[in-house]
């Protein structure tokens, strides 16, 4: 139901949106692009692992787009930039992944954090290559070889992001239901048992890790080419925290949660910044607390629960994708 009816409906609505509310395009493009890394986080959460460092791949994607664009002259070609970002983040994901998939839980989170902070420091340090904290300018690339005005270019990017997001949501949904996806869930509930089945938890985790890195990389590249800049902030730990935040907000049990979370997060951030003055962090923090304490299934999960109850179904979404409450001290 969720993926077969609502998901296509949302994509269709989003595709028609520029005809109705064109002033929304920029906002939604960011929402779509930033939902991509969140999908990656949701995938990792299936195995109970949370990365506090995925901003590193987001930054790698954005900076790769910037460097390749510069190297190609002008701004380069959008699809080549995205491909390059994909390739770079896959390579980086593989490299970092080989190390981090050996660890679990807090150690997994922290090692990711450490890697991303190293990248953050390097981006700030190598100012003559990266532009330091001012960031790297990304000139407007061509779209399928066409030079474009900003309006047309943004129109184009809107649909590119939407298409990539739809593709990613669909792919992640299929992945979660594939043997790899089931192995992921099994890793969370009992890793030893997975090994007895002859499945390598590390390899499974690595596959998903690289996929999540790729999603973050493409998301970063999209934000970069849309904003026209990549800054070291893209790799800072608070951004990694935001990705996890958005995943929980939207509901980490469903891939669609990435979109719902990303939308709500950006919406609150923009409106709070515009109308509540200097309290957007407070608003977001309260919201996160509220979700975790009172609706741990997230926006989508809670809606599914409500929908199920409404239709009298007995099946209930688990309170959290992370499993039932566990003992505090293992």
């Amino acid at each position: 139901m969720l993926m077969r009816v609502i998901f296509p409906a949302i994509v269709l609505l989003a595709a028609l949106n520029p005809l109705v509310f064109p002033q929304w395009d920029a906002f939604l493009t960011i929402v779509f692009a930033k939902a991509l890394p969140v999908i990656g986080i949701i995938l990792l959460l299936q195995a109970g692992q949370v990365s506090f460092g995925h901003a590193m791949f987001f930054a790698i994607g954005a900076y790769t787009a910037g460097f390749v664009g510069r190297w190609m002259g002008g701004g380069g070609e959008l699809f080549l930039l995205l491909l390059a970002a994909l390739a770079a983040s896959v390579v980086a994901g593989l490299f970092v992944g080989i190390f981090v998939v050996r660890y679990r839980y807090i150690f997994f989170a922290m090692l990711n954090l450490a890697f991303s902070m190293v990248l953050f420091s390097l981006l700030e340090k190598f100012i003559h290559i990266t532009g330091g904290s001012d960031g790297l300018r990304i000139s407007r690339p061509t779209l399928l070889g066409q030079e474009m005005s900003r309006a047309n270019y943004e129109f184009g990017i809107y649909y590119v992001s939407l298409a990539l997001l739809a593709l990613a949501i669909f792919g992640a949904w299929r992945l979660m239901d594939s043997p790899v996806g089931h192995a992921m869930k099994a890793i969370k509930s009992n890793e030893t048992r997975v090994e007895y089945l002859g499945i390598s938890p590390r390899r499974t985790l690595l596959v998903v890790y690289v996929a999540s890195a790729a999603l973050a990389g493409v998301g970063g590249a999209l934000v970069g080419v849309f904003q026209g800049i990549a800054t070291p902030d893209y790799a800072y730990w608070t951004r990694s925290g935001e990705f996890v935040f958005v995943a929980i907000l939207g509901g980490a049990g469903q891939v669609l949660g990435a979109l719902a979370g990303s939308f709500s997060f950006e919406f609150i951030r923009v409106t709070a910044a515009a109308y509540l003055g200097d309290t957007w962090q407070l608003t977001l923090g309260l919201m996160l607390l509220g979700i975790i304490l009172f609706a741990p299934a997230g926006i989508v999960g809670s809606l599914v629960n409500v929908g199920n109850r409404w239709r009298g179904r007995r099946t209930r979404e688990k309170p959290s994708p992370l499993g039932e409450a566990k003992e505090a001290v293992r």
């Binding site: 809606l303 409500v306 929908g307």
Partner: peptide, 10 residues
């Protein structure tokens, strides 16, 4: 269908 409704009213 609630999801869509909420999204569009938002």
């Amino acid at each position: 269908m609630k999801g869509k409704l909420v999204l569009s009213s938002l």
